[in-house]
Measured scan of single mutants.
Amino acid sequence: MIFPGATVRVTNVDDTYYRFEGLVQRVSDGKAAVLFENGNWDKLVTFRLSELEAVK
């Protein structure tokens, strides 16, 4: 189960963010908004829950 605050990895091989890890900001309607941070940039991207896996 994916909840806000969880760290997730993108599993969709066709996505630009494949294998990126980010922090879930919100979850609704089968989608999750994931925040990616890297140095001087932040990006908030929405994914279907089926495209994400929780990082242990």
Rank of each mutant, 00 (worst) to 15 (best):
M1G: 14
M1I: 09
M1Y: 11
M1Q: 12
M1L: 13
M1K: 11
I2V: 06
I2A: 03
I2D: 01
I2T: 02
I2F: 07
I2G: 02
F3A: 11
F3P: 04
F3R: 11
P4I: 10
P4C: 07
P4L: 07
P4M: 07
G5D: 03
G5F: 04
G5C: 07
A6P: 01
A6K: 05
T7N: 06
T7Q: 08
T7W: 15
T7H: 10
T7P: 05
R9A: 05
R9N: 03
R9L: 06
R9D: 01
V10L: 02
V10P: 04
V10Y: 00
V10C: 05
V10G: 01
V10E: 00
T11A: 06
T11M: 08
T11Q: 05
T11S: 07
T11D: 03
T11F: 04
T11E: 03
N12R: 11
N12S: 08
V13C: 07
V13I: 12
V13R: 12
D14S: 11
D14L: 14
D15M: 05
D15Y: 04
D15E: 05
D15N: 15
D15I: 05
T16Q: 14
T16A: 14
T16P: 15
Y17N: 05
Y17G: 02
Y17A: 03
Y18A: 04
Y18H: 06
Y18W: 06
Y18L: 02
R19G: 15
R19P: 06
R19C: 11
F20P: 00
F20L: 10
F20C: 13
E21S: 07
E21D: 04
E21Q: 09
E21H: 09
E21M: 09
G22V: 03
G22Q: 00
G22C: 02
G22T: 01
L23F: 08
L23A: 06
L23C: 07
L23V: 15
V24T: 02
Q25T: 13
Q25L: 15
Q25M: 15
Q25W: 11
Q25F: 09
Q25I: 15
R26Y: 15
R26L: 12
R26V: 12
R26P: 01
R26M: 14
R26K: 12
R26T: 15
V27C: 06
V27Q: 03
S28K: 10
S28E: 14
D29L: 07
D29Y: 08
D29R: 08
D29C: 09
D29P: 05
D29I: 05
G30W: 04
A32S: 01
A32F: 03
A32I: 06
A32M: 02
A32T: 02
A32L: 03
A32Y: 04
A32E: 01
A33P: 00
A33W: 15
A33I: 15
A33G: 05
A33T: 15
A33F: 13
V34D: 00
L35D: 03
L35G: 03
L35Q: 07
F36G: 02
F36S: 00
F36K: 00
F36W: 02
F36Y: 02
E37Q: 15
E37L: 13
E37Y: 12
E37P: 11
E37N: 13
N38L: 14
N38A: 11
N38M: 14
N38C: 13
G39R: 08
G39C: 09
G39A: 10
N40E: 12
N40L: 11
W41F: 11
W41D: 11
W41R: 09
W41A: 11
W41C: 13
D42F: 15
D42G: 14
D42L: 15
D42N: 15
D42Y: 15
K43L: 13
K43N: 09
K43M: 13
K43I: 14
K43H: 10
L44T: 10
L44N: 04
V45G: 04
V45Q: 06
V45Y: 05
V45H: 06
V45C: 08
T46D: 08
T46R: 04
T46K: 04
T46A: 05
T46C: 12
T46I: 14
F47M: 04
F47E: 01
F47H: 02
R48V: 08
R48F: 14
R48P: 14
L49V: 09
L49M: 06
L49K: 03
S50N: 11
S50F: 08
S50W: 12
S50G: 09
E51V: 05
L52S: 01
L52I: 09
L52Y: 02
E53C: 08
E53P: 00
E53R: 06
E53V: 10
E53L: 07
A54I: 15
A54H: 10
A54M: 13
A54Y: 14
A54C: 11
A54F: 14
V55N: 03
V55C: 06
K56C: 09
K56A: 13
K56W: 12
K56F: 13
K56D: 14
K56T: 13
